[in-house]
């Protein structure tokens, strides 16, 4: 599987990562090399094997309210936090 610069750029966009052209080319080359190793999986006979979802259902619990994380601790870790308890971010709507 060959990854070229455009494909690397597409993937980077999905991953919310930005690279300059040199970075994209380097990433494309490394991914190509790694994926060509991974491509050996094509030779495995997987008939009858479904990697899909686990047969175990996700355990559920009763919806009982419990104390959560202390807000002061949240505020101290936040890059920007308002006095009334909101994370401050640049405008989202309209972008």
């Amino acid at each position: 599987m060959k990854i070229d610069r455009d494909e690397a750029k597409r993937i980077a966009g999905l991953a919310h990562l930005e690279f300059d052209d040199a970075g994209l080319d380097r990433m494309a080359g490394e991914m190509t090399k790694i994926l060509s190793y991974i491509d050996q999986l094509r030779e495995v006979d997987i008939a009858g094997f479904d990697g899909g979802s686990s047969t175990d259902a996700t355990p559920l619990r009763e919806d009982v309210p419990r104390p959560s994380i202390d807000r002061a601790a949240v505020a101290s870790n936040a890059p920007a936090f308002s006095a009334d308890g909101h994370f401050i971010v640049p405008k989202v709507i309209g972008e």
Partner: peptide, 14 residues
């Protein structure tokens, strides 16, 4: 890729 890898994983488990 992901689907095939998970199937090979199931075979490895077997």
């Amino acid at each position: 890729y992901y689907g095939r890898a998970q199937a090979v994983r199931a075979r490895l488990r077997a």
